[in-house]
Every structure is written in structure tokens, then in C-alpha cells.
């Protein structure tokens, strides 16, 4: 299927900007496990690491991630958000517990990880 590049870029920007609006909201509780509405990708486009497009589509998010501990240690987008078919705009919190099991079980009840550790930059505490 041929695709017009400008259309693709526009779709990417729209989809991700919508996602940003939720992810980057004020320090309110963010729900987890919110399914994403990523624009359709061709099979070949699916063979591109997420950050390669998001470097341009959402440069601020990309930079936050790239400069974070996750970025330095090559924790990829799909590890938290899933990949195309099962992608979550806001990840299931359980995914944090894969690596941060101790912290996950110690955090106060009713709070999300990213209330204290801002998503993508993952600084120590907000």
C-alpha cells in the first residue's frame, strides 16, 4: 500500500499530540492501561523503532526519554507502551513492576508510579 508521506507525518503528529495531552497533564492521577489510537502503519513502517519517528514527531518527549535513565540504558518505548497491536498510550502500571518490583509494592496505595516519577524523564520525585 502506497502512502503519502505528508499524510503519515500529520497522522503521527496528531495521534501523539493527543497522547501527550493526557500524559503530560498536571499532577493528577493518570489512569493506566489506556489503549492507544496510533495512526495506521504499514508493515514496513512497523519495522522502525518508535523513537526514530518520535524524534521528529514528538521531539520533547523523545528528548526527555533520551536524557533519562531509561534513555541512557536503552529502555525502549515498547517495553512500557507495548508495540503496535497492543500499544497502550498510558502503560499498565504492572509493567513497571517487571524491573521495579520493590518500589512498585512500596508505593502508597492509590497512587501511580508517574505521579512521583514524571513519565519519560523519570527523575527521582516530582
Amino acid at each position: 500500500m502506497l502512502r503519502k508521506p505528508i499524510f503519515l507525518a500529520a497522522l503521527l503528529s496528531m495521534g501523539v499530540l493527543a497522547a501527550c495531552a493526557v500524559e503530560k497533564g498536571p499532577s493528577s492521577y493518570s489512569p493506566s492501561g489506556v489503549k492507544a489510537d496510533h495512526p495506521a502503519l504499514s508493515e514496513a513502517e512497523k519495522l522502525t523503532p518508535c523513537f526514530e519517528c518520535h524524534k521528529e514527531a514528538t521531539p520533547e518527549l523523545y528528548t526527555e526519554w533520551y536524557q533519562s535513565g531509561h534513555g541512557l540504558d536503552s529502555v525502549r518505548c515498547f517495553q512500557c507502551h507495548g508495540t503496535y497491536e497492543n500499544m497502550k498510550r498510558v502503560p499498565d502500571e504492572a509493567v513497571c513492576s517487571v524491573c521495579h518490583s520493590g518500589e512498585f509494592h512500596r508505593k502508597p496505595a492509590g497512587t501511580s508510579c508517574w505521579q512521583c516519577h514524571p513519565e519519560h524523564s523519570f527523575s527521582a520525585h516530582k
Binding site: 500500500m1 508521506p5 507525518a9 508493515e43 514496513a44
Partner: peptide
């Protein structure tokens, strides 16, 4: 080429399935 231009080029060449 920038990454976006690269995607444009590869997308234009993309077959429907892989």
C-alpha cells in the same frame, strides 16, 4: 536525509505485506 525523509522514501517503496 533526515529520518522523516528516510521514512518517506522507504514508505514509498513499501510492499503491502512483509
Amino acid at each position: 536525509l533526515s529520518r522523516r525523509e528516510f521514512i518517506k522514501r522507504t514508505a514509498a517503496l513499501t510492499a503491502a505485506s512483509c
